[in-house]
Design a binder for these strands. Sequence first.
DNA 1: CGCGGTGTTGAGACCTGTCAAGACGTGTGG
DNA 2: CCACACGTCTTGACAGGTCTCAACACCGCG
Lengths: 239, 239
Amino acid sequence: MIEKHLLKLRARDDVGDEEEKAIRGLVSHTVDIPADEIFIRAGRELSESTLLLDGWMARAKDLQSGQRQLAELHVSGDFVDLHGFTLKRLDHDILTLSKCRVAVVPHHRLKELTGRFPQLTRLYWFMTNIDAAIQREWTLSLGRRTAISRMAQLFCELRLRLQVIGLAHNNSYDFPLTQVELGECLGLTAVHVNRTLQQLRRKGVLELQQRRVTILDVDALERIAEFDNRYLYLERRRH
Amino acid sequence: MIEKHLLKLRARDDVGDEEEKAIRGLVSHTVDIPADEIFIRAGRELSESTLLLDGWMARAKDLQSGQRQLAELHVSGDFVDLHGFTLKRLDHDILTLSKCRVAVVPHHRLKELTGRFPQLTRLYWFMTNIDAAIQREWTLSLGRRTAISRMAQLFCELRLRLQVIGLAHNNSYDFPLTQVELGECLGLTAVHVNRTLQQLRRKGVLELQQRRVTILDVDALERIAEFDNRYLYLERRRH
DNA sequence: CGCGGTGTTGAGACCTGTCAAGACGTGTGG
DNA sequence: CCACACGTCTTGACAGGTCTCAACACCGCG
C-alpha cells in the first residue's frame, strides 16, 4: 500500500526494518477522493497529514481575480502536506487533479516518531526540503524561463519523479492534467499552453494525447529545459 | 549576538531557557563576508549551516544564459541554509547582497540537537517550512501577479519580516538591493523595475531612495499586492 | 578628474494574453 | 440511435505588458 512511498524514500536514503515498521505504523486509515476537489483548504486547522497513495494532487494558491497558480504537483508516494505537521495550517489549498486514494497520518503519531526516531525525523524533514527545492526550480522557471523551456522542465521533472516510483516506462507516463491546469503550473494561459505544446510536438520532442505524455527525445527536451536533475536529490545521502 | 534569531523564533513559538541555551550552544564562530560574493556555491558538500547575524543574503539560481533568479531574501536572524543540514548540498547559491556577518553552526551540533530536543527540532523544521511558504508566495507572484503587484508584495513581506526583528520603523527600512537585483527577485528586467517603481512613487504609495524603502500608504500597498500575511506564520502556534 | 556602477528615459520588438469562434469527444437522456 | 450539452482543445486576430537596445545622467570613489 505505501510501497511507492518507501520507494521514494529509499531513492534518497537507507530505511531499515525497524524504521519501515515505524513508517507503516503511521497510517491510521485510507480515504478515496473524487477528482477536482479541494481536499484541504488553506488555513484549516490540521491534526493529520496525508500520504498520497494513488492519483494526482497539487498545491494551489490563488488571487482574488480567481487566477490560480499551482506550486507543486504530487504523485503516488508523496506526502502532500507533511509540512502541515509543523505549520499546523497551510498557506495554500491541496486539491485533487484526478481520483485519488490517500492514507491518513495523525500528527500525534508523527510527534511520537520525532521523539523516538531522530534519524527518521531528519529524513522526513529532508523530504519537505526536497519539496522546497522543487518549488525553487519552478520559481526559476516562472521568473526566467520561456514558455517552452518551462514546459520542458516540468515534463523532465515528472519523468524522473515517476520513474522512481515505477510509473514511467519508455519515457512515457500518464498525465491527467488539462491544458488549463498545465497552464496553472506554468503561469501561462490555456491558449498559450496549447501553442507551446504544438511547438514541442513540431520539434518531435514530445507527444501529449489522451492524458498521456510520451517523450520522444529526452536529450532534446532536457536541452530545451536546461534541465539539471540535481535539485531532485535522487542519489543516496552519505551521513 | 543571535538576539534577532531568537526574536524571529519567539514570534512563532515559545523558546524556554534550556532551549535558548541549546540554541546559543550551536554557534561555533562568526565570519565577516564582503558584499556581492557567492558565499555558498550550489552542490558544495556542506558540514555546517549559516545563521545570518547582520546584512542581507539571498538564494539564487541561474540559467546558462547568465539570467539569475533570486528565490528568497534573507535578513538578520535568518538561518540561510538550515535546509542544507538535511540536504547535505544545496541546489542553489547563497550570496551576499551587502556586507554580512554570519554565525557558523556545525552540522554535528544540529544532529546532536535533533537527538536531544525533539521540540526544538520540530521548531527548526517549522522554520524551513516557513521559508518554503515564502517561496510559494513568490511563485504565486511570478506566475500570476503583474509587475507592480509583485513588487508591492515583496515590500509588504519585508516590512513584516523586518518588523519582527526590529529593523523596520514607521514603515521604513533599509533595502540594499540595486534595481537589477530587485528585478532578479521579481523576474523582471532592471528597466522594467525602474518603471514599476515610478508607478508606485506616482501613486504616492512607496518611496525608495538611497537604499531605503519608505511605505507611505500601507493599505494601498497591500491592496495592490493582494497581500495576505498568513503565509509568514507570524502568530504563536498552539501545540 | 575620470571611471564604473547605478538609475532613467525613449523607441520599437516580441512574447504572451485576451477575446471570440469553432471543432472535437464523450456522456446523457430521449 | 440520435440529439444535445458540456468540457476540452484548437485557431485567428488583435492588444498589451514586458523586454531589448541604446543613450544619457548621476554619483561615489579611487
